[in-house]
């Protein structure tokens, strides 16, 4: 017989994997996905308990988790975008300005060389010609 404990075990595994993902991966989006996966583990637990106790409260909780996750996703993605615009990367490690004064910045031992990316395409405002960088006009 598949009992509640089986479901709880699966939930625990998902939760743990999500936690590890959150702690290790440096891409903001992957971190966020990991956090969502932790929520999935929790949701499985809630639904299993709901069934075990024979009422609906666990499912209601899961529903709220989904709602909150949706909000979270919206806000988080908006934040990621604005962060990305500032530093042109999704690496969470570039945001460490809140460290103690006098502590060295944590950097990678051998950073990968990445090609600089172009800026976001800029839409022309009506009536004004877009300014171009100097080299381009010279060419």
């Amino acid at each position: 017989m598949i009992t509640i404990s089986h479901y709880l075990a699966v939930g625990a595994v998902l939760f743990t994997l999500g936690l590890i993902g959150f702690l290790t991966r440096r891409n903001l989006i992957v971190m966020f996905l990991s956090a969502e996966m932790m929520l999935q583990g929790v949701a499985i637990n809630f639904v299993a308990f709901s069934r075990h106790h024979g009422n609906m409260h666990g499912q209601v909780f899961t529903l709220f988790i989904i709602a909150v996750a949706a909000c979270e996703a919206g806000i988080a993605l908006a934040l990621f975008l604005s962060l990305y615009r500032k530093k042109r990367t999704l690496d969470v490690s570039v945001w460490q300005d809140l460290r103690e004064a006098g502590i060295d910045e944590t950097t990678d031992a051998q950073p990968l060389t990445t090609t600089p990316e172009d800026a976001d395409p800029i839409l022309t405002k009506a009536g004004i010609a877009p300014k171009r960088p100097l080299e381009e006009t010279n060419v």
Partner: peptide, 17 residues
């Protein structure tokens, strides 16, 4: 213990965990 405050979010989360 000041170096622990290194500004890395993941490090803080790891400490908690």
């Amino acid at each position: 213990i000041r170096p622990l405050q290194n500004g890395l979010v993941q490090f803080y989360a790891l400490s908690m965990a």
